[in-house]
Each structure stands twice: as structure tokens, then as C-alpha cells.
């Protein structure tokens, strides 16, 4: 699935250069459930942005199913994000003025899915995360856990090849956290590749494969050496 080779990303911040990723090489296979842990500023989110085709590295390559995301055009990257990658944000990132149903539908807009089919697939996605009766609610009318479920439904509705989750349980209480993790595990069991960044070791331990990133470098916490 992912072939990451000598990946480096540097930022200019406050007059100095910050090396967020420093020569990362990594391979993630299809159907894996991978957790990425590490301290704040260690490069977790930057790595996820590279995997999610949202930013370009300073050097190195990221290849997703044969597509080099480092050299692809903006149009191709948008197409990859629209069809291949599902992304779950830590802060849910729902559009506050749209209902749960409409928020899920936004993920199908770039794929030009017709309106009726879009609505039907959004309803099904919401039902799959247990929110079949909450489609007409605005985000502000939903709990944190429900909002994260809507965000997961939005990521899943396009039937992506990989699900990238950035701190998916970061803003949730313990009970809700477990529900979300079970949901992600269920998706993994159904064959979806899942990569999640988390601070929570309890969550990370439930992953098949655990990575740690600190100072821009990645290390395996699980025995299987895949780099």
C-alpha cells in the first residue's frame, strides 16, 4: 500500500529550520491497523499529512498503490484524497452549518456522485456508525462522540482504501473512546487499512502494529520489522 522512502520535511519557523521528519522510511501493507505514538511536535501529524496527500515532503518519496504523491499534480492529489483516502480529524472538523447527513455528503461532492445516490450512501454510512436517526442534526446538536462518528462516516462513505485518523479519541471521554476504537477495529477486521495517530497508549496497544515517532524519526514498537 504505502512505500515511504527517506522522507524528510522541514519547516521555516521563527527564523530557524524545523526538521519535522528526518529520513523516514516505512512500508505499510494493505489491511494493517497501525498506531503511531510520540510526543507533541515529534512529527506525527506531519507524517499523517504526507500519507494523506495533503502536503509535499522536502525530500524523499511517498508512494500509494503505485502513485508517487510527492511528484503528482495538485489535481491528482485532490483526486487521491477524494477517492482513496478517508481522513478523520482530531477536532472532527465538521462544517457547522451543515447537518450530519450533509456533512457526510460533502465527501462525495468531489467524486461527482449524483445527489440521490449521495444522500442514500450518506444515510447508509451514518447508519453504519450507529447514527441513522441523527442525519438531520447540526453538529452543535450532537455529542463529541456522535460528532466523531459523523466524521468517521464522512471518511468511510467514499469507500476509501485507507483510513487515516489523527487523534480520533483525543477529545472523547473513556467510554466514548472505547466505542470509537471498537468501531475502527471493526472496520479493520472488515479489511480496511487503518493508520491512527494517538497519544493514548491504551488505544495504541490495540493496534496490530505500533510505531513511535520522535524528533522526526520513526521506530517500531512491535516485533515485526517492516522497514
Amino acid at each position: 500500500m504505502y512505500e515511504i522512502t527517506d522522507l524528510t520535511k522541514t519547516y521555516a519557523a521563527q527564523g530557524r529550520t524545523v526538521r519535522a521528519l528526518d529520513g523516514v522510511s516505512l512500508r505499510i501493507g494493505a489491511g494493517e491497523l497501525v498506531s503511531v505514538q510520540g510526543p507533541t511536535g515529534g512529527g506525527k501529524s506531519t507524517l499523517l499529512q504526507m500519507l494523506g496527500a495533503m502536503d509535499r515532503p522536502s525530500s524523499g518519496t511517498v508512494v500509494l498503490d503505485g502513485t508517487d504523491l510527492t511528484t503528482a499534480s495538485d489535481r491528482v492529489l485532490a483526486e487521491v484524497r477524494a477517492r482513496t483516502i478517508g481522513f478523520v480529524f482530531q477536532g472532527f472538523n465538521l462544517i457547522p452549518t451543515l447537518t450530519a447527513q450533509e456533512n457526510v455528503e460533502t465527501a462525495l461532492v468531489p467524486a461527482r456522485v449524483p445527489g440521490a445516490e449521495r444522500a442514500e450512501r450518506a444515510r447508509a454510512a451514518l447508519a453504519s456508525v450507529g447514527l441513522g436517526d441523527r442525519g438531520h442534526h447540526l453538529p452543535v446538536e450532537l455529542s463529541g462522540g456522535q460528532q466523531q462518528r459523523v466524521a468517521i462516516a464522512r471518511a468511510l462513505v467514499k469507500n476509501p482504501a485507507v483510513l487515516l485518523a489523527d487523534e480520533p479519541t483525543g477529545n472523547l471521554d473513556e467510554e466514548t473512546r472505547d466505542e470509537i476504537v471498537e468501531l475502527l477495529e471493526g472496520l479493520w477486521h472488515d479489511g480496511l487499512t487503518v493508520v491512527m495517530v494517538t497519544h493514548d497508549s491504551a488505544v495504541a496497544r490495540r493496534a496490530e502494529r505500533r510505531l513511535r515517532i520522535a524528533g522526526g524519526t520513526v521506530s517500531e514498537l512491535t516485533p515485526a520489522a517492516r522497514t
Binding site: G52, M54, A78, E79, V80, A82, F87, N93, A107, V109
Partner: peptide, 16 residues
Amino acid sequence: TRELGTLKALGWPGRR
């Protein structure tokens, strides 16, 4: 910014 960035992260083309 966050809202529009999210849409772009979801694959919305810039022109959209």
C-alpha cells in the same frame, strides 16, 4: 480556514 481546508482535505478541487 479550518472549514475550507477540511473541504480541500476531503478532495474538493480548488476551483470548487
